[in-house]
Write a protein that binds this DNA or RNA. Sequence first.
DNA 1: ATCGAAGCGTTATATTATATCAAGTCATCC
DNA 2: GGATGACTTGATATAATATAACGCTTCGAT
Lengths: 160, 160
Amino acid sequence: MQTVGFENHDHTVCVGVGMKAAEDVCAAQGLRLTKGRRRVLEILLQEHRAMGAYDILGMLSDEGFASQPPVVYRALDFLVANGFAHKIQKLNAYIACAHPGDSHTPVFLICRACETVAETAAPLQSTLGEAAEKIGFKIETTIVEAEGMCPRCRETETAV
Amino acid sequence: MQTVGFENHDHTVCVGVGMKAAEDVCAAQGLRLTKGRRRVLEILLQEHRAMGAYDILGMLSDEGFASQPPVVYRALDFLVANGFAHKIQKLNAYIACAHPGDSHTPVFLICRACETVAETAAPLQSTLGEAAEKIGFKIETTIVEAEGMCPRCRETETAV
DNA sequence: ATCGAAGCGTTATATTATATCAAGTCATCC
DNA sequence: GGATGACTTGATATAATATAACGCTTCGAT
C-alpha cells in the first residue's frame, strides 16, 4: 500500500510534482489549467490537508481573486473532475490528489482527532464490483473513507 | 452478499421488521425511542429511499410536529448513532438501515440516474483495516459508497 | 418529592453549494 | 484579420444543509 499523509517528507517536492503532473495531463488532454484553477491546486498542494471550499476562497480573495463562491467551486469542480483533487465527503472538504496522473480509486484515512487525511490505494474494489455486478448494478465510482485515529494522535491520546 | 434495494418485496414487512428491531434494541439498551424518533424511523422505512433532512422535516411538520431543523436533525442523529439509519454522504441524505440489529459496515450502491440506494455488506473491511494498521492508523468506522447504474436504469438507458 | 440527565421547543445563525445571465477569452476556420 | 463557437469568468442572488444556544419539560432514579 502506498500511503501519503502521515510520514514526514520534503513538502516542496510534493507541490512541484503535483503541479507538474497536472500540467502534463492538461497538456496531453487539451485541458486549460487557468490561473484560478492553477492557484487552487497550488493552495491544496501547499496546505497538504483537506480544506473547506470557503477556506480556499478566503485565501483566493486575499490574493485579489474575486470573492464569490462560484470562483472556488468552479475550480474545484475542474480539479476533481480531472483527478487532480478529491472531495472528502465526510468533511465536506477538498484535498490535492496524492497520486496524480495514476488512474485510481482512492481510500482516505481520516483522523477524527486532528482531521488529517491520508490517501491510500484500495485493496478491494474488484471484489465489490463483481459482487455488485451479480445483482445487475454497474459501479462507476467508489468512495471509501475510513475514520479513526492517526499514529500521531494515538500517541498523544495514550500519553494523556 | 445480502442486498436490499433493487428487488421487489412486501414493503409493509420491511416497516414492521424495522420498527420491531429498533424497539428491541432500544429496550435492550435502555434507549428512548421517543415519538419524534419513532416517527422519523417510520418515515424512512415507509419511503424506503434516501431522504434529505428537510424532506423529512416537511412531513413531520405536516403532521403537527414542530417545524424547525433541530427537530429532524436530533432524531436523525439518534437513529444514525444507534444504527437504525445511515447517512448517505454522497447525497446528503438519510436512509433506514436495511439490516437492523446486525452490527455491520454497510456498503451503499447509489444509482446516479434514479438515486435509489441499496445497502449491502462489505466483502472487504478486514483487509483495509489490516493495511491501515500497518502504518499505525486505527480504523473505527468506514464509509463505502459506490455510484453507478442500477439494473432498472440500465435497462431503460439501453432501451432509449 | 426532588434531583439530575436527557429530550424538546424555539430563535437565530453558520456552513456548504448552486442557478443564472452577462461579459470576456481563446482557438479555429474562412 | 475578422467571424464564429466553445469555454471561462464576473457578479448577484439564492438554495440547501446543518448547528449553536438557551430555557423549559419529561423521565427515571434515589
